[in-house]
Simulated assay, not measured.
Amino acid sequence: MKILTLNDNSQFTHLFFCEGCGCGHGFNTIPNRGVPTWSYNNDSESPTIQPSILVRSGNANGPTVCHSFVTAGRIQYLPDSTHPLAGQTVELTDMD
């Protein structure tokens, strides 16, 4: 399963593992929760999520950016991402 559905009260309703960042990225599909809403095809094996997902955070080396599209089970990292997979497209990995 490449998309994990969360059944708690967190701000995100779903989660996928990002190879570029080495951690999970969440997205919300329920409107009016006070956070952005994405569309999702509800296919946990070959997911498509729209629009793009932009994650800004930081670590000991400074600010980081992960910007991607998830389409048909593949994650396309956009060139403005600051990790080594920027500009590449890879298969999403399974969530454990």
Score class of each variant (00 low, 15 high):
M1Q: 12
M1R: 13
M1L: 11
M1A: 14
K2E: 09
K2C: 08
I3D: 02
I3K: 01
I3C: 05
I3M: 04
I3G: 00
L4F: 13
L4P: 01
T5Q: 11
T5N: 09
L6S: 05
L6P: 10
N7A: 00
D8I: 10
N9P: 00
N9S: 15
S10D: 06
Q11L: 05
T13K: 10
H14P: 02
L15R: 13
C18P: 08
C18I: 08
C18D: 15
G20Q: 06
G20E: 06
C21W: 06
C21M: 11
C21A: 15
G22A: 06
H25C: 06
F27V: 13
F27N: 09
F27I: 12
N28F: 03
T29Q: 05
I30K: 14
P31I: 02
P31V: 09
N32K: 15
N32C: 08
R33D: 12
R33S: 11
R33K: 14
G34V: 03
G34R: 05
V35S: 07
P36G: 09
P36S: 06
W38M: 15
W38I: 13
S39E: 12
Y40R: 05
N41P: 05
N42L: 12
D43P: 04
S44T: 13
S44E: 03
E45V: 01
S46R: 14
S46Y: 03
S46T: 12
I49L: 10
Q50T: 15
Q50N: 14
P51A: 08
P51Q: 07
P51W: 03
S52C: 03
S52M: 02
S52L: 14
S52N: 10
I53C: 04
I53G: 03
R56Q: 08
R56F: 00
S57E: 04
G58S: 11
N59L: 09
N59S: 14
A60M: 09
N61K: 15
N61P: 02
N61D: 14
G62A: 06
G62E: 04
P63S: 13
P63G: 11
T64Y: 00
T64V: 10
T64Q: 11
V65T: 15
V65N: 09
V65C: 15
C66S: 10
C66V: 04
H67T: 02
S68C: 13
S68Q: 01
F69H: 13
V70F: 02
V70L: 02
V70T: 09
V70N: 01
T71I: 13
A72H: 07
R74V: 03
R74S: 08
I75K: 06
I75F: 00
I75H: 00
Q76M: 06
Y77R: 05
Y77G: 04
L78I: 01
P79H: 01
D80L: 04
D80E: 15
S81W: 00
T82E: 08
H83N: 12
P84L: 04
L85S: 02
L85Q: 05
L85T: 08
L85F: 03
G87I: 01
G87N: 02
G87R: 04
G87W: 01
Q88T: 14
T89L: 01
V90L: 09
E91C: 07
E91M: 07
L92R: 05
T93L: 08
T93E: 11
D94G: 06
D96S: 14
D96I: 08
